[in-house]
Structure formats: structure tokens, C-alpha cells
């Protein structure tokens, strides 16, 4: 649980900042998705945008957490050290 929170929480904070910056500078109605103008309402674009930012940031936190595992932990998983 604590691991999950340590991934989801920092990414939530950073996603909030990213969302604010991105959509202050860019009007969602001027975005293109796969070559088509985005036809979603602004509310929907903001919301989906936030969730995407959160997911991306969480992916980064996940990699950090994965690489932070100690040698002992990694060895134990692969069964090299008994």
C-alpha cells in the first residue's frame, strides 16, 4: 500500500502542475488527435488530459521505484543468492 501511494501521490502532484501549465498555454479546442480536431468538450479534454498526465507521471515513478530496489531484493527474486 505504501509503495502504491509513493508511486501515485508524487505523480498526482506533478500531474496537477503539468495540467495547469499545459492547458493555460494551450486551448484544448485547438488540439488535434490522430490528425482530427479534438471534438470533446473542454471539460472532458481537461479531465482526460489530467488522467493522462497522471498516468505518465505514475509510469515514471514506477520506473524509479523499480530501479531503487536493492541488490539483495533483485537477487532474491531471480533466485541467484540463497
Amino acid at each position: 500500500m505504501q509503495k502504491l501511494l509513493s508511486i501515485l501521490w508524487p505523480s498526482f502532484l506533478v500531474a496537477g502542475i503539468a495540467e495547469g501549465l499545459f492547458f493555460t498555454l494551450i486551448d484544448p479546442q485547438e488540439l488535434y488527435l490522430l490528425g482530427e480536431p479534438v471534438r470533446l468538450s473542454r471539460m472532458a479534454t481537461y479531465s482526460l488530459g489530467f488522467l493522462c498526465f497522471w498516468a505518465i507521471c505514475a509510469a515514471s515513478s514506477l520506473v524509479t521505484w523499480y530501479l531503487l530496489r536493492s541488490a539483495a531484493e533483485v537477487n532474491r527474486r531471480v533466485g541467484a543468492v540463497h
Binding site: S70, A71, A72, E73, R76, V81
Partner: peptide, 8 residues
């Protein structure tokens, strides 16, 4: 001393 199994 990361080798110690107790630590892991």
C-alpha cells in the same frame, strides 16, 4: 552490508 539476508 546488503548481502545480509536478514536485511533483505
Amino acid at each position: 552490508q546488503t548481502e545480509s539476508p536478514a536485511f533483505a
